[in-house]
């Protein structure tokens, strides 16, 4: 862990908090992609499988628990309590291709040929693209509530801050995983496009709206 990854993790927590806050206050999940959140849930489950037998520190242990629990809770809310407000007709991204593509990449080049190694690699690739159903949904509706835009920006910061973290690790000659770096860059680029629109709209006090 470094200052950058610590801040990145905090941005991730902030993103989850913002999303839950929005869902709780508005009693609605309109504009939120269930598909993206199911993918994120799969990301955390496959990555943190070793949660109970590989203890590193209280920090990592509790963050992992928080990510798995909060993501399960978000999916639960969309599927149960807030189901009537879920825009199913807008959430039509074909996530099967993402799952298939990530599975193939993980099988071809896992960090280690073991169940854990393959699942971990799968989770890294899947995380990099898991937001696509959400961005696709945004593209279809053309605008987002400001708070959804805040959520996406916080998620952009999260992986974006890992990039200086990896550079720092390289600088102090610590091991860096190439897969994480590649996937992390893809992930940040996907959000960055969105962040540019965010800067032009939300930061100028306007409603988040994609250019026509």
């Amino acid at each position: 862990m470094s200052l950058f990854s610590g801040l990145g993790d905090l941005a991730h927590l902030a993103a989850i908090f913002l999303l839950l806050q929005k869902m709780r206050k508005s009693r609605s999940c309109s504009g939120i992609s269930l598909k993206s959140h199911l993918l994120f849930l799969l990301v955390y489950i496959t990555r943190y499988l070793n949660l109970f037998w590989s203890f590193k520190s209280l920090y990592f242990f509790s963050m992992r628990i928080i990510f798995i629990c909060s993501e399960s809770y978000i999916c639960y809310l969309i599927l149960q309590n807030l189901r009537p407000t879920y825009d199913k007709r807008l959430d039509t991204f074909r996530s099967g291709y993402l799952l298939g593509g990530c599975a193939i990449l993980a099988l071809i080049y896992p960090i280690k040929y073991s169940v854990f190694g393959i699942l971990w690699t799968f989770s890294i690739w899947l995380e990099s693209v898991a937001i696509l159903p959400q961005l696709f949904m945004l593209q279809r509706s053309g605008e987002a509530e400001t708070i959804t835009a805040h959520y996406l920006l916080a998620m952009c910061l999260y992986r974006g801050l890992y990039i200086p973290h990896w550079i720092y690790r390289l600088a102090i000659r610590q091991h860096v995983m190439l897969v994480s770096v590649f996937a992390g860059i893809i992930q940040t680029v996907l959000y960055a496009d969105f962040a540019i629109v965010y800067r032009r709209t939300v930061l100028q006090g306007k409603k988040f709206r994609l250019p026509a």
Partner: peptide, 10 residues
């Protein structure tokens, strides 16, 4: 090693 550095990140 590889698996060790996985544990350093979320």
């Amino acid at each position: 090693d590889t698996i060790q550095s996985i544990k350093d990140e979320l």
